[in-house]
Design a binder for these strands. Structure first.
Lengths: 224, 224
DNA sequence: TAAAATTGTTATGGTTTTGTTACAAATGAC
DNA sequence: GTCATTTGTAACAAAACCATAACAATTTTA
């Protein structure tokens, strides 16, 4: 679950955006000043929505500060179109920008678009190990070119394990990786999913690799 | 790698656009005056981004000059909406136009959209899979040579899916591809269109392929 | 301009996936 | 080999997700 930082000094706006973001599956934290935004940015943020007009430190400065050591996507929000010249001209490195007034739907569409773009650019999310092929983007997995009909969780589990050959994951670790940080379910849930995943994998031969149980710890993917 | 000509007398803007274009996979050359733009145009350009307000020779003149002997796509950039009347009215032959202020993301989206459109016109986008025939250029589709009376959205959806066999598309992804960058509607809309598309497809037999739902993700086309 | 076609939105009910639990089986320590 | 602990499995319950239909809005056509 991606985490947004929403920085705007208008609490009504941030509240609406926060609610809306949650409905779309984004966690979010809110800052009402520029300095607060910089402070909160340290808490592992996936995308920043940054209002230009803010007390203490304006959006431009915050953006430039963040860009000094991070490429986390930033969407600038401005009250009027005139700021365009500055956003572009100052080369502050925002990824997109939105002019007020906006609809929450528009904001979310842009957030998702930017995240998608970043995601596609950075990782291809494809694994090929022996006869196993996992494509997280297309949500398809196959053994010997025969398609496995995996569910979302199953493919995510398999990807996580296979992408980290021989590394053992605890159940809590997997819950974090696949289910997200703010998921508080039973860790035995992982077992059930592993069973279902194995049942599907074992319909085909794969002598060179397997998903193994690490006793007292969790699970790992292993190439022999 | 398509090559863009970016013509604008504001160097800061052109720099950012150039960077952005590179990230999206476009090479680009920059002109800061109208005459320079005409000069650089000779170097095998795939698309021109043309600011209206430029020294020496304005964007309109440059556009008209280029159109005398070339159909290379041109996107006009204007500072204010009023120019719209002139761009469209004077029939200077631009393919699209963008009003400042714009975000780099928007510009790139339009560039890609125009290139896609041109591409559709020149390379006939035709898919033949088993008994299915989809012609995006002519907006026609048929099964066993029997014409399906698909609407525009339906045929675009079918084409997008069929052109990427087995690749799952999220609803948001499809909204991007088929509806475009600045569409902010509900992603359930996709479902409705898929239902209507399926209803039409299922009037005919097509045992070798189908449009499948990918649970928790979206849709995909699958050849068995 | 009116009618028709297309497109967008929403509510409902049904389906698939996911989460949980209980119990059996396996494992490792002793 | 026995026991305590961990894991596998199956069945069920809950949640998430989707298909469909009906209707509203918009666009196109006549």
């Amino acid at each position: 679950m991606p985490k947004l930082l929403i920085a705007d000094d208008n609490l009504q706006i941030t509240n609406i955006l926060k609610d809306y973001a949650l409905k779309e599956g984004f966690e979010s934290v809110v800052a009402s000043t520029g300095t607060q935004a910089l402070e909160l940015f340290k808490t592992d943020i996936d995308l920043v929505l940054l209002d230009v007009m803010m007390p203490e430190l304006d959006g431009f400065s915050v953006c430039k500060e963040i860009r000094k050591h991070s490429t986390t996507p930033i969407i600038m929000v401005t009250a009027r179109g005139e700021d365009y010249e500055r956003i572009m001209g100052l080369d502050i490195g925002a990824d997109d920008y939105i002019v007020k007034p906006f609809s929450p739907a528009e904001v979310m569409a842009r957030v998702k678009a930017v995240l998608r773009r970043i995601d596609v650019q950075s990782n291809s999310h494809i694994i090929d190990i022996d006869n196993l092929h996992v494509d997280l983007t297309a949500f398809k997995a196959s053994i010997n070119h025969e398609e496995l009909h995996l569910t979302k969780k199953e493919i995510e589990l398999l990807y996580t394990l296979a992408a980290n050959n021989k590394q053992a994951f605890s159940r809590d670790n997997l819950l974090d990786q696949v289910w997200g940080y703010s998921y508080f379910g039973d860790s035995r849930t992982v077992d059930a999913h592993m069973t279902r995943l194995r049942a599907k994998l074992d319909k085909y031969d794969h002598p060179k690799w397997d998903v193994k149980t690490v006793w007292g710890v969790g699970y790992k993917f292993e190439v022999l």
